[in-house]
């Protein structure tokens, strides 16, 4: 009885979390434009989606920005983390604290402050400013992902490699980078996801000249329900699901500790929350 109640409670929570998403997806297949009326199955909205040049260009912007931003952030952040390890404690603490600012600040504050910066130094709002903004909020996540790996780093192999005649850069590439790889990959994936997902910062740093998917959704949703958004949502939801499955599978097969495997997805999510949402030391 008690068990049944527990199950029921969790079921209700899940219903609350999923009902809107499911309704959203179901209505993306609705033939009727008039929202809640079901007029039969159709792929009209998906067809319209792929002929809508605005949506297509937003799609391109979203992924192009995400790709460039996460690559740049990964390189910038990885080297930054390595350099930070060599700093004096005080400098390190200062740099780390500043690095946390974009992570902890509400997105709207980050967004408007960058907007003011671009106005201040005379960069016109658009693709470039958006890209710069994305690199700025992605890099800290890379640093935060890589730093713990650096703490655990076994430096002796680097020294051993040099002892055996490897040039410093070769030794770095062959010994340090592989050890940091898990952190770097996490940082990259995190950056990519956050960039694709971002609305608020993009909203303030593009000045309406360029739009990513989130912004399209926002401008369409402001006018009420639009089945095309449902179609975009359904596609994004499925994409994210598949991506998550791949990421999880990759970790499942790569992780040696079988016991930890069960909730890699969960751990990843926890990490993201850790990174994503406020607090920190």
């Amino acid at each position: 009885m008690k068990k049944l109640l527990k199950k029921l409670y969790i079921f209700l929570i899940l219903l609350f979390l999923y009902a809107p998403i499911i309704v959203l997806i179901v209505y993306s297949f609705n033939a009727s434009k008039s929202r809640a009326v079901w007029q039969g199955f159709s792929l009209t909205w998906y067809q319209q989606l792929f002929t809508d040049s605005k949506i297509l260009s937003a799609l391109e912007t979203t992924f192009l920005i995400a790709l460039i931003a996460s690559v740049v952030a990964t390189v910038l952040g990885t080297f930054a983390a390595m350099g930070m390890m060599k700093m004096k404690k005080k400098t390190f603490e200062t740099v780390r604290t500043i690095t946390y600012i974009p992570v902890l600040n509400p997105d709207i504050v980050t967004g408007v402050s960058l907007m003011m910066l671009f106005a201040f130094i005379g960069i016109e709002l658009g693709f470039v400013s958006m890209l710069l903004a994305h690199i700025t909020f992605c890099t800290p996540y890379v640093i935060i992902s890589v730093l713990p790996k650096l703490y655990q780093l076994d430096m002796s192999v680097y020294e051993a490699a040099q002892d055996l005649g490897a040039k410093p850069f070769y030794a770095l590439r062959k010994t340090i980078i592989p050890q940091l790889m898990p952190g770097i990959v996490t940082g990259f994936l995190l950056s990519f996801t956050l960039s694709v997902d971002d609305f608020v910062i993009s909203y303030f740093t593009t000045g309406g000249h360029v739009e990513n998917l989130s912004m399209i959704v926002f401008s369409m949703a402001r006018k009420g329900v639009n089945p095309k958004i449902n179609a975009v949502s359904a596609l994004l939801f499925v994409t994210v699901m598949i991506l998550l499955l791949i990421v999880n599978k990759r970790e499942l097969s790569s992780k040696k500790h079988a016991a930890k495997n069960k909730d890699t997805l969960l751990n990843r999510e926890k990490q993201i929350i850790k990174y994503r949402r406020n607090e920190g030391k």
Binding site: I21, L24, T193, S214, A221, I229, S233, L236, F237, V240
Partner: peptide, 12 residues
């Protein structure tokens, strides 16, 4: 659901 775009969740 947290992985789903925050705007889409609100829109839903």
């Amino acid at each position: 659901p947290m992985w789903m775009n925050f705007l889409l969740r609100t829109y839903s």
